[in-house]
Design a protein around this nucleic acid. Sequence first.
DNA 1: ACAATATATCAATTATTCATGAATTATGGA
DNA 2: TCCATAATTCATGAATAATTGATATATTGT
Lengths: 110, 110
Amino acid sequence: MDINKALAAFFALSQQTRLDVFRLLVKAGADGLNAGEIAALLDVKQNTMSANLTVLLNAGMVRNERHGRTIRYFADFDAMRAVLSFLMEDCCGGRPELCQPVIDELACAC
Amino acid sequence: MDINKALAAFFALSQQTRLDVFRLLVKAGADGLNAGEIAALLDVKQNTMSANLTVLLNAGMVRNERHGRTIRYFADFDAMRAVLSFLMEDCCGGRPELCQPVIDELACAC
DNA sequence: ACAATATATCAATTATTCATGAATTATGGA
DNA sequence: TCCATAATTCATGAATAATTGATATATTGT
């Protein structure tokens, strides 16, 4: 992941609606959600939501698939991992002794 | 970490100069860097850098310490871990089977 | 107390982002 | 083909963010 991709990812996640959308899609997992459903669930106007979905899409944080006349959106888990790795990578550049605790304490809340 | 703290973190990291600063401080590790050094290294005007450092500071991504007339900045590794955990937490909310691969592949590049 | 250095704050300008109404494109069904 | 539905694109105005010169504050050394 280059720095511009990382910037786009952070930018996409730095706005309330878009972060809400991403979390919603993460929770929806492999099922995803239709654009219209997302707008309704978060009570955001349809075109506003479309613009925000486009930002997430361009940042690579979500994917989409057309099914008939609906378009289904999915969180991109690979992109999420890439963002986490990007910060990790920086972390490990100089000082492994600071890096390891971060990884160790990164518990999965499953 | 609540959503507002997460938004502030993502916002802070979503701008070129600030992401550069954060990476620089992560690499500098426990030694940190002085405000002036950071501005010089990244070739950014002193007051512009000061404003950007304040954004990172308010977001909790960096700490600072005054040493005489210089002010030394440090990456906050706890905050970094919190941001990573925040996304992990979402990940695990619904579907552990999607979450685990993300963690497994999150290799440390030490 | 004074001068020099390091950093932060202020005020103004410019640039970017956000939300929205209106128009457009794409698909499926009658 | 015509209509209805789902979603995107466009143009615009309002809000927010970024940069900068000028100024203020804090600290050290003389």
